[in-house]
Write a protein that binds this DNA or RNA. Structure first.
Lengths: 179, 179
DNA sequence: GATCGCATGTAAGTGGTTACATGATTTA
DNA sequence: TAAATCATGTAACCACTTACATGCGATC
């Protein structure tokens, strides 16, 4: 069995939901999965070729009337099996490399005003993310009717929402009593 | 001004707290900062050389009686200024690439039992991390008396603790009603 | 006929890891 | 004296990004 990178499994996973072109995958990452996962074209297209070489997906050129050149990938039985094997492997929690915490740990070099500014900025960005996140949840709830991944996506975005709320609450609390 | 990577700023930040050898930096990352930040030797030693070339740190060989060869780095005035400039730059929240969420988003391919197993395993690892985290907090509270970074480290680890607790609570909740 | 969005792709570079090499000092 | 730990370092490789190239169809 060929070793695949996490990024390749993510691409394979998206194709497993429905046949897709590279461009569709890029769009999903840009629009919906932005804060969870993202890959550049320079990753996606070579990954698709590799998946096909390993017979985990097949490709057909889209021939629907007057369409642009589009290469649609479909998962194979072998691909589905390898995907499931990966899903069943235990996964470690991702290391948490939050830049603002690195800076805060050097807070002794900054004035209280400077720290406040850094944290206010961080908080605003989190609030912005939370807003977008809620839009995505609303989108899933209304547009994914009958799609089999709907309940799972809602669980995923629920964790993300809770974490954003936790971070925002932390910001508010410490902004009120900085050392 | 030379462009530095985030990793280089982290090394510079550690040296700013007190003069250190490469080995000390590695130890800190291994013992205390494991879940926040980590760098390999193949990164740390070249970074130290680069910082010295750019006159952001100076180095002296440790000559204390019978000691091993140890190269101690001390931050310069220029280094301190550049570090502070970096601290004051706004930082974006880190993209959140949690592998378990990728897998859960493909939950339609798994049985309820399989999903349970994945989530139980994830929860156990989080609980283990939380335990270690609390040890570190206790360590900071007792061993960092009078150190100027103490209050800031406590704020940092407080966020990490809250986030771990949020994730664990999320696990418990969804384990009770998986689709 | 210009320009926007769809669609696929690659060259060059960066940031990072794994795994190993080296050698000294301390401890069992 | 063997093993563990301290301490520094590098070669080879991998994953990923930035920035660009290309060309077609739809829209203005």
């Amino acid at each position: 069995m060929t070793e695949l990178t996490k990024s390749a499994y993510v691409v394979l996973g998206l194709i497993s939901k429905r046949p897709q072109a590279g461009y569709d995958i890029k769009q999903i990452m840009r629009k919906i999965a932005r804060y969870i996962w993202s890959e550049s074209n320079a990753q996606i297209y070579p990954i698709l070729k590799k998946l096909e070489q390993n017979k985990l997906v097949t490709s057909q050129l889209d021939k629907t009337s007057g369409a642009r050149r589009r290469c649609i990938y479909t998962i194979t039985k072998k691909g589905m099996e390898q995907l499931k094997d990966w899903l069943n492997e235990p996964s470690d929690p991702t290391p948490y490399r939050e830049e603002v915490l690195l800076k805060l740990s050097l807070g002794q070099h900054l004035s209280k005003k400077q720290l406040q500014k850094i944290l206010e900025n961080y908080k605003e960005k989190l609030e912005e993310q939370l807003k977008e996140e809620k839009e995505i949840i609303k989108h899933i709830e209304t547009e994914h009717e009958k799609r089999p991944d709907k309940p799972y996506l809602l669980l995923v975005y629920n964790q993300i929402e809770k974490i954003l709320e936790t971070k925002i609450a932390w910001c508010k609390k410490i902004l009120n009593h900085l050392p």
